[in-house]
Design a binder for these strands. Structure first.
Lengths: 146, 146
DNA sequence: AGATAAGTGGGGATAAGTGGGGAAAATAAT
DNA sequence: ATTATTTTCCCCACTTATCCCCACTTATCT
């Protein structure tokens, strides 16, 4: 499964090299918009599950419709070239505010793609509050033990 | 299981020799960010449990996402080279403020990795207040896990 | 003190990441 | 319909980082 974070560069053709360790577990993948202004990359299998979930949400709630459109309509299938790179279409790069320096993070069963600057800011914020967040978590869900 | 503390040196390639006594019980391991600014090293088995929990948190809550990113994206699978060393990636060294002198402490079912200076300060502080801290501990007898 | 194991440091081979050129395909224009 | 222009894709080459091995130093055990 996917863990860790890597700093890679987006070249001027919109190509992004997926870390070799992740690549091995990925043949086909789907990239779409994620929360907190990042992109998410699912292996084909995981994507099926996610898409299923969103498409089966009751459509009477406005929030459900919005979320489904966000995730499903924003999605693109990506393939790897000989060097293990994928092409991120312009609208996704724009959405996530990607310039050149990009962070690819493994979140166990999927990947996230961030603009490096945003990632660093988010990380700094989280680390500063990590103790509080951890304590709040364990209040809500006592089964999470560190 | 893991007990005791060792002072080791990080070389300029980011490598850290794991104490031989610990090494014997570890084939594969995962290092990630811990609370109080240290790194945590889990044996593969322990890690599976932890990762499972974090990866299955509902992603609709901001705190859940933050915590998952902290623990999962902060993690790295580490392997031992012929000399029993692991490589700590730059972002983890930076997170824990590791320079050269490092303390590796066994906490029964996992290891902690500290910058030596921080460790000494933390130790001094807690030893001075140990009785107070013990008093404030909630029900050690019940199922509370630290 | 000698022997053995553990920890530390560095160099060379190999793989991973990055950038760019050119062929093929698609689209658009005459 | 043919040509021209743009876009996509594949391949090659370079640079940088990672891994593996060897050698030295320090500590531990008998």
């Amino acid at each position: 499964m996917f863990v860790g974070q890597y700093n890679h560069n987006l070249d001027n053709k919109g190509r992004l090299a997926v870390p070799a360790k992740f690549r091995k577990e990925l043949k086909k993948a789907v990239v779409t918009q994620g929360l907190d202004n990042c992109l998410v990359l699912y292996p084909q299998k995981e994507w099926q599950k996610v898409a299923q979930k969103f498409s089966s949400l009751p459509i009477n709630k406005a929030n459900n419709r919005a979320m489904s459109r966000f995730m499903l309509a924003g999605a693109t299938e990506v393939e790897f070239d000989g060097q293990g790179r994928i092409i991120l279409p312009e609208y996704l790069r724009k959405f996530a505010g990607l310039s050149k320096n990009v962070v690819i993070a493994g979140l166990y069963n999927y990947l996230e793609i961030w603009d490096e600057k945003d990632w660093n800011e988010y990380k700094a914020k989280t680390e500063k509050n990590s103790t509080d967040i951890a304590e709040a978590l364990s209040d809500l869900n006592s089964s999470v033990s560190l």
